[in-house]
Computed example of a mutant assay.
Amino acid sequence: MWFFKFLFTEAARLLRSAEGRRLLWLAIQYGGKPRNQLTDVTFGRFQFRVPDALSFMWQFREIFVDEFYRFYTTQQQPVIFDCGTNVGTSIAYFHQQYPRARIVAFEADEPISQILQDNLRRNQITGVEVVTKAVWTNENGIMFGSDQADSASIYSLTDQKLVPSVRLRDYLLRETRIDMLKMDIEGAETAVLTDCRDALAHVQNMFVEFHAYLDHPQTLAEVIQVLETSGFRYYINTSQYRHAPLVNHRYRGNDSMDLQLNIFAYRN
């Protein structure tokens, strides 16, 4: 099974931290669950319902073990924009690290947003405004393909339908300071960031998950240009590794995507 390989290759590193040990226990408990099946999981003091246990464990690793969303702030009530919230694993982390934060959570997939809101109520997480709309460049709606796990996107052809949208730029300009802007919007990030390029001056930290889909241009240079002209420093990594990448052009054997990067942007 997949999690036995995971355990043997990662166990030594993970055992050194409490959250790493918790991930190992989650893998033992839920690693054998069928894909795309509603599952109740417990991690720390949180109890969540998730639509896919394997996707949740990857989220937990990035968010709680590797702390992709950790940032420094002196603000008593930091403002966090979470674009592409999914079921709320990121919200649980933000609430744990920054208990007085004011969070605006955007989730385009209506069934996933309902699970998100149920998880927030179940865990008594307050201070979160949930916007069940896609983050985009206008308010005219956008064609959006659903997915049972965590990869629904504007490029997915599965159950594609028109969903309501918001112009993120308008939300950004309503604030005087945004301590963290997290953006995991499955391919819409280039268009949205380009539209917001004149509205990022008061954003202090940013996480962008960059995606490149097959049969669509790779637009990493556009994203980096927005960050550089907005005065950010940045660091880029990827969770994928390819053997013989000049002949192996797929992201983890993915049939729709050939590149995914994590971009961490911050101000000195």
Rank of each mutant, 00 (worst) to 15 (best):
I142P: 01
I224A: 00
D195T: 08
L181N: 04
Q117T: 13
N123L: 02
C196A: 10
P164W: 06
M1F: 14
I63P: 01
M1H: 14
A212G: 06
L220M: 04
L26K: 02
Q29V: 07
Q59C: 12
L246E: 13
D255I: 10
N268D: 15
G84P: 08
S55Q: 05
L26V: 08
N248G: 09
L7N: 08
W136K: 09
T39C: 12
R49L: 11
I80V: 14
W58H: 09
L157Q: 15
Y266M: 03
N262R: 10
K182W: 06
K33G: 03
V65H: 02
S156G: 14
W58E: 06
S146W: 01
V41F: 01
R13F: 12
H249G: 11
V192L: 10
T137C: 10
Q218S: 14
C196T: 05
A265S: 07
A212W: 08
H249W: 11
G32Y: 08
V203E: 03
R233Y: 10
S230L: 07
Y213W: 13
Q117V: 06
A27W: 09
Y251S: 08
F60A: 00
E189K: 06
L193N: 00
V166I: 14
A265G: 07
N86L: 06
R102D: 12
R35M: 08
R70H: 12
C196W: 00
S165P: 05
I80F: 05
A212Y: 04
T229E: 09
F264H: 06
I178Y: 03
E186W: 07
T39H: 07
S90M: 07
T238Y: 00
C196K: 00
D159E: 15
N205M: 05
T194P: 00
T132W: 05
F3R: 11
V247Q: 15
R167V: 04
V203S: 06
I28R: 09
Q59V: 03
D195N: 13
F8R: 14
R21M: 11
D170K: 13
D150T: 10
V163A: 09
N268I: 04
E228A: 10
D159K: 13
C83S: 09
Y266K: 04
R233S: 14
T158I: 11
Y251D: 05
F94M: 12
T126N: 10
R122D: 07
T74I: 11
Y234E: 00
D184I: 05
R177K: 15
L214G: 08
T219C: 09
M57F: 00
V41W: 01
I185W: 04
E139Y: 07
Y69A: 06
R121E: 11
Q47F: 00
E107W: 12
F106I: 12
Q260M: 11
V166Y: 03
K33V: 11
A18D: 15
Y234R: 01
N138R: 10
V203M: 03
R100D: 15
T85V: 09
V208I: 15
P51F: 11
M206Q: 05
S153I: 04
W2V: 14
T137W: 03
R169F: 05
V65I: 08
E129K: 13
M180L: 14
V131G: 05
E189F: 04
D150R: 09
I91D: 02
F48S: 00
G187L: 07
L26F: 04
R177W: 04
A191S: 11
A105Q: 03
A92F: 02
T126A: 12
V65T: 05
V135C: 07
A201Q: 15
G32T: 10
Y69G: 03
